[in-house]
Design a protein around this nucleic acid. Sequence first.
RNA 1: GCGGGCGUCGCCAAGUGGUUAAGGCAGCGGCUUGUGGCGCCGCUAUUCGGGGGUUCGAAUCCCCUCGCUCGCCCCA
Length: 423
Amino acid sequence: MTNFKNLRGMVDLLPAHSQGWQKVESIALKHFSRAGLNEIRTPIIEQTELFSRGIGENTDVVGKEMYSFDDRGGRSCTLRPEGTASVARSIVQHGLLNNGPQRLWYRGPMFRYERPQAGRQRQFHQIGVEFVGLPSVMSDAEVISIAWDFLKDVGLVDLTLEINSLGSNEDRNVFKEELKNWLNQRFDLLDEDSRKRINVNPLRILDTKNKSTKELLFEAPSLKDFLSNKSKIRFDYLLDLLDKLKIPHKINNNLVRGLDYYSHTAFEITSEHLGSQATVCGGGRYDGLISELGGPRAPSIGWAIGMERLIILAGEKILQSKSPDVYVIHRGDKAEQLALEITCQLRSFNLKIELDYSGSSFSKQFKRADKSRARWALIIGEDEASKGQLLIKKLRHKPKDVESNEYTFLKEDLDQLIKKLID
RNA sequence: GCGGGCGUCGCCAAGUGGUUAAGGCAGCGGCUUGUGGCGCCGCUAUUCGGGGGUUCGAAUCCCCUCGCUCGCCCCA
């Protein structure tokens, strides 16, 4: 086999699916624009250190999933594994916060070197929102509601919003020490993975899928008992606001998420219809990231939605492409010129026109017209061409109306023809 | 990185050692030189992911390899 193939985990978006993506993206744009967000586009390659510093040296994403390489100048570069770090970098670099808080959205490909499986690819696409420089609890609620409303509008059902508070950095550090102690006392009861994590990233152990460790953890100290009063009040208020917005939510005290920069609010929107990769949207608050990258103190919150997973959930319906309004059938040299001319004219009226190129018999062309699911056929043969006439025929009509579904117009009376096509 | 399943035409798919590798969909052509949605007829894989081996003979057995897929870890 000498033919070329796409790299593992890299997926072509084929014509049969592209209109579905466009549909979803246009719904997203509608939601973003009415929420007053502006788009930001950043490069898909950054210097490696941006991600290792921003996302966290000990995270799985940085530790084993990055597409990194040295460029010809010997600089270590990385294909972005997520969007937030790049957006934060750009905001700091261009001093955008001097113009006040930033409400932004982005979309594009992300890269993670993992074994592909259902709902997971090496190149995948995220569409995301970042509210930067807004400490208010209201912004948490607003940001979540944008995601929720968007997903609902796309037609998704059976979604669950899981939410947790990680507290402030101080809360969490106290808790981490306490948890480490507790875990170390039960070291030989832990599974291998969790043992490795104790010192590196003890919080992630809370999220373990290992059964016996999970049972053990029922007795473990809980992060929520270490939240300061301030953090608790903040979280409770957020839950209140979500109630007011009628967004159902489930508190999940073990929801930690894999990126280091989160504090206070962490959330995921999941679906039971996705197989084992259940998260369609993940996000949270990152109050320290901007300053960590050299910017001002700018508490922020955002989320990212996985487009591929979203499309899976939206299902077949959204992938169906729009059928043409008119399928143009023609035969003969003179007819061909008129057909092209009329096709272009009709398109200027925003009608979707498909022009037959086969030059085969009328019978064949009609068959193709039918297959295209067009509402109308426009027929130009030798007769029409010489008389300057246009014949249209309504397709997909009940047989009893056969005699009444053809109409002839002079090519000068295009506006009458269009009127007929539209009604 | 670690487990399980699978690889026959663009898609679905029969075939499990014996001369020509079913069938369906899609495509192309015809029945029908100007009228579709139905029907009928014809055409479309020297070849079974690739390489090696066993055998008189392999898509069918063995070995290696590549790929896909599902799951674990983790995430969108």
